[in-house]
Design a protein around this nucleic acid. Structure first.
Lengths: 297, 297
DNA sequence: TTGATCGATGCGTGGATCGGATCGATGTTC
DNA sequence: GAACATCGATCCGATCCACGCATCGATCAA
């Protein structure tokens, strides 16, 4: 098969229709250029030029081959440039997982930030619970995950990405008689919607610890795994719930939000998690730009 | 710049993820294959494989480069095959000129014939008068022309492609009283539409010679260069005209056609004309298939 | 007829690529 | 856990290829 160098020789001769000028453009002398053209013609099995000692003309076959040769050379250049950009993290794909709750708050800003840092990187965004994100990071399906703290994160690189407070979600009817900020004790004996320990272990433990600490025992009327299910139940008047404050962005008509009094809320943590051995340069570039690439746990 | 051989090496390794197997597929040994991959990586400036002594994996940059490399190789193959087909006359472009009058009769059949012989050859068909066709053949704009005899054809290869008879075109009103076949003498003193010596020299000379031979002098009411203009005038009742019989395919409602009696019509000749030095293989292929490629004037 | 131009060809050299042998690292097996 | 097998990297000598220089042969101009 012919080589790219022969294609460059061919294009130069076809453009100049003059071996000497083409050779000097290619920084070589005329004899090897003639040789390369002959080799190319022998390889294809077709004469590409009609040449006398006084004139050089393209044959019809040469006229057909010329744009193909230029296309191949153009593709080779662009393949190289594109690959280099991927290597520098300026192009490529970044696959990101996030929990449903984190999507309400930080996702739009994160996407804006990524678009600003790496406008040519394709983003693949998948909502997954923490456990599934861990598996996906392991198998290489995800480059980066935004998830709740978990004991299984020890083999990964973890940075705290955001913290927020919990707020009380109340049925609108009960909110009219409630003070601007609620002490935890206000939940005592209230109808209360709790997190499921199966699908929302982190929030379950967080709320359980908060209630235990204040020795408060609400009347648990339901256990659910997803925050929007929880708010739907509040909206229907089944009871109150504790949700991260960014969940207030979900506009349920019959739900009112009240902060906890005295800064009683524990911080709800969201971690950025990735594999240290991940070789996606787009990930490295994002971590560097976001200041997350220092060594640590 | 990298070479196509390096791309083939890269694709083989990427497909097998194993240097030894890739090398045997490429009919080479493992050491030079390792070298080629290293050279390619150095050329691009990007590692394409993550390799330990136990495993070979593509880097993200390599994953991007792989489809590009395959595309370049595919394009190179197809460019070579396509160029070979053009060389054999099985593909490419054939530019054909024809006079307006010849288009009425032989063009559809010619196109069918060409499609049968060379289904992958693009046909460019241009209606041009004989003089313009000669110039176009000279400058290489046309490969083949269908034109009337002319003294300027000596430097070209010429074959008689078709002959036909002249017929009389009569206004429909006059046709009812005319016999089935008209002697030339019938034109004596008739209103008659003549060919212009500027734009239709061949027909002008042909008709003039015919009339002179029979010592007939019609009343020339108009001189025009195009046959459809001529029939339009007959249709409008201005007079009679002599036209090639295939012109009867132009359906003018008030025009009737009558043959000349006694085979008095001179043959109207149509030549196929081309440059002997023309190197378009599609032309050579057509000439060979049509049996026109024997030597001669 | 002479000289200039231009692509093709002969030839010697230097660099690139090849295959064989071997190294070093890693995972497997008993 | 020590011997073994596997696999990519590296070293080295032989070969091949592409380069430049010199020259040839054909063509066109003066």
């Amino acid at each position: 098969m012919f080589g790219l160098h022969q294609l460059r020789c061919f294009v130069a001769v076809a453009d100049h229709l003059h071996f000497g000028q083409a050779a000097s453009q290619l920084n070589m002398t005329q004899p090897p250029l003639s040789r390369q053209i002959q080799l190319l013609e022998r390889e294809i099995g077709v004469p590409l030029f009609d040449r006398t000692s006084r004139s050089v003309r393209l044959t019809p076959a040469g006229r057909v081959f010329l744009p193909e040769a230029k296309r191949i050379l153009r593709l080779s250049e662009s393949a190289m440039k594109w690959t280099r950009r991927v290597w520098r993290g300026e192009a490529g794909t970044l696959r990101i997982g996030f929990t449903a709750a984190s999507g309400y708050g930080m996702l739009p800003g994160l996407i804006r930030q990524l678009r600003g840092i790496m406008p040519n990187v394709d983003l693949v965004l998948r909502e997954m619970v923490t456990r599934l994100q861990i598996e996906a990071l392991d198998s290489g399906v995800l480059d980066l995950g935004f998830m709740r703290p978990s004991v299984d994160l020890r083999r990964f690189a973890v940075r705290e990405h955001a913290t927020e407070a919990m707020v009380v979600a109340l049925p609108a009817g009960e909110a009219t008689t409630a003070p601007p900020a609620l002490p935890v004790s206000d939940l005592q004996d209230r109808p209360f919607i709790m997190y499921s320990p199966d699908n929302a272990l982190y929030f379950h433990d967080l709320v359980t610890a908060l209630l235990d600490e204040h020795q408060v025992q609400p009347k648990v009327v339901e256990q659910v795994g997803q925050i929007h299910s929880m708010l739907a139940l509040v909206d229907a008047g089944f009871g109150a719930a504790l949700v991260p404050e960014t969940a207030a962005r979900l506009h349920f008509p019959a739900v009112a939000f009240r902060p906890l009094a005295d800064g009683a809320s524990p911080p709800v943590r969201l971690n950025a998690v990735w594999r240290d051995e991940n070789d996606n340069p787009a990930l490295a570039r994002f971590l560097a730009q976001a200041g997350l690439d220092q060594v640590g746990t």
